[in-house]
Amino acid sequence: MLHYLMKRLAFGVLTIWFIATATFVGMHAVPGDPLMSDKAVSPEIRKHLEQRYGLDKPIMQQYQIYIMNMLKGDFGISFTQQNRRVNDIIAEHFPVSALLGVLAIGYATLGGIMLGAITSLYRNRWPDYLLIVFVVLGISIPSFVFASIGQLMILKVNAWLGFQLLPVAGWGSISHMIVPSLILGLGILAYLTRLMRSSMLEVIHADYIRTARAKGLSSQRIFYRHQLRNAVLPVITVLGPAIAAITTGGFVVELIFAIPGLGRYFVQAVQQLDYTVIMGTTVFYGAFLVLMVTLADLLYGLIDPRIRIQKVA
């Protein structure tokens, strides 16, 4: 186990290094640069700005400096947020996104597993169809629309109640998180429901279920210990990257609900070509992703012992 973890760690570091390098190259290959602004500056000032951000050095040297700083855990200073450290940006905004993401993923996973199981039991009957319509609507309508409608619903409910049950937007308490996380998780919920349904249908007819039945196990035990446990594997596979994506990709929800998450920095950084923020967030995201994928793989092994045996062997 320890050996396996060490190996994963080594691979993780390598992956992150690749990500950092590819992003660095890509970023510098794209036209434009972070020092451009709406109102043009004189060449003299530009030269000093370049000096300040180290852009005057040869590209290889910049790369070297960047990697060295990254090893020290320093992502540098943002180009667009004056005097603000990229480390601070991540440290301040990632927890917000992560909290929202965890809530969203949490309910989406539980809901997806549950709804998927139900629909598989009612295959090709009305609960199944009802759900498929919901799922289709859920993925065919941009999340912006759900977020807007969600916010309007809050307004309507508050007006109807006569007091503020939920805040319209903002951040700070549990009540601020409920609707945004519900909306953020919709897509994943829909996906997991469908995935779970398919996977359940596969499993229901598997030989070991038949064997279990033949053994005379209670249907409850079969359902929980055999069906659910086997069917949940694909869900876990997609969960790792999904957590990583959702905790950083909630841009639209963050925008509409005025939530200070990391999502907007991801989107803005590329548009503004904020080199340090692009590098910092990408590398951080990469590391987070590697961690999540590793966790998912470990979980996978825990749930399906056969896979674990294979790995160790």
């Binding site: 319209v168 937007a169 609900f257």
Partner: peptide
């Protein structure tokens, strides 16, 4: 200034909610 959002719809909703 408790809200930072560039979505005009969200800001209007906040106004409507009395926030």
């Amino acid at each position: 200034i408790p809200y930072i959002t560039s979505d005009p719809g969200a800001r209007y909703n906040l106004f409507k909610a009395g926030s």
